[in-house]
Design a protein around this nucleic acid. Structure first.
Lengths: 197, 197
DNA sequence: TTTTAGTTTAACCATTTGGTTAACAAAAAT
DNA sequence: ATTTTTGTTAACCAAATGGTTAAACTAAAA
């Protein structure tokens, strides 16, 4: 692993757990096991290092989503694939959703920069598909964006609000693993039951 | 308004928008229109001031929830009341959910402290009620905690991930207001359609 | 009218923090 | 073999930041 990679990995770990404002350059250097000056040698500033980490995180999730959004599967299959895919991925990157959401809320100016890229999550095609299936009478009529937000909410929220959710529902760390696995199927069933005619 | 109140309000505003790590004592003083020393005079330290704000925020939401959780209404009515109530409240306190979630993730040690209070959101009774309605055959059988998390997710997530949601679904600030109003009924319908036999 | 207790401010302080510099080492290019 | 480029470190710096202090001010109590 090159020094630059060491730095990037350490930065990802620290930024994702403490956020931009809470992260310390020294801590990143320590975790990477290198001198603090190297951070600036490779990434110039805290802001640029953060940007690298943030964009990487974002563009790691987005393409996966778009692949499903834009595939030729039926809506029901897409919902199933999305929950399955997303939960499996985020299980391996536990802090990602909370991190992205937190930093987008704290630095709304990022939004434009991040979403100008072609790799942004773009549900346009999926929305069109939902509308078509409504017109065909396959599913109930509703605002497609509300439906999309339902799926998104049910899938992402348990990770984004992890600490709170575990505490309120009194779920231990081990139980949470099982709970998430169970949730893949649960979300799919709930959504399909809710919208099918 | 007393100086202490001015400080508290300013602190709430700054902490909720920037989080603990991103907030600056000087900024809070400026927003309160008073000298920085007053913050320490009344609240001793940044940490204590933050704690006051955070606990206040938390205990503002929790009792409302419990009131609904523990009422004698039927499940369907409770769901309706919860979404209606929560969305209306949070519309007036836009940064609350993201703030609470962010700080609980960043300082998990808070969890014990916050949730030891009797004012914590406690869905135990609601879970029992769900189980009973399942046994009676009124609603489909499923893990009650999954169902609770569904309701919670669909209601809270749009606020917690506000910036992201608006950006991805391409909803303007004004449209978002209407969208949220529409969402009250939408969530209720979706959930009830999903679980009713 | 004088105490006294609480309130407010400007100036100050110590530490933290992001960032820089200059010397040095190792590798690449000549 | 020697120069040049790249990588690495320790020491340092200026600004920011949470916190303190001592003096001034205010209003109510004595």
């Amino acid at each position: 692993m090159t020094t630059e990679e060491k730095i990037f990995n350490a930065a990802r770990s620290v930024f994702q757990q403490k956020g931009y404002a809470g992260a310390r350059m020294q801590e990143i250097a320590d975790e990477a096991g290198i001198n603090k000056a190297m951070l600036h040698y490779f990434f110039r500033s805290k802001e640029q290092l953060f940007k690298a980490v943030f964009l990487n995180a974002f563009y790691q999730i987005a393409p996966q989503m778009n692949e499903i959004f834009n595939s030729s599967d039926s809506l029901f299959i897409k919902i199933e694939k999305f929950t399955e895919n997303y939960i499996s991925f985020v299980k391996k990157n536990r802090f990602l959703p909370a991190f992205i959401i937190q930093e987008m809320n704290n630095n709304p100016q990022f939004v434009k920069e991040v979403l100008s890229n072609e790799a942004r999550p773009n549900p346009a095609k999926l929305i069109k598909q939902v509308q078509e299936e409504m017109e065909k009478g396959i599913i109930k009529t509703m605002n497609p964006k509300q439906l999309l937000l339902d799926i998104f909410s049910m899938t992402v929220f348990p990770f984004a609000a992890q600490t709170l959710v575990k505490a309120i529902l009194e779920i231990s760390d081990e139980e949470f693993e099982i709970f998430l696995e169970e949730r893949k199927k649960h979300i799919t069933e709930q959504i399909i039951n809710a919208i099918k005619r």
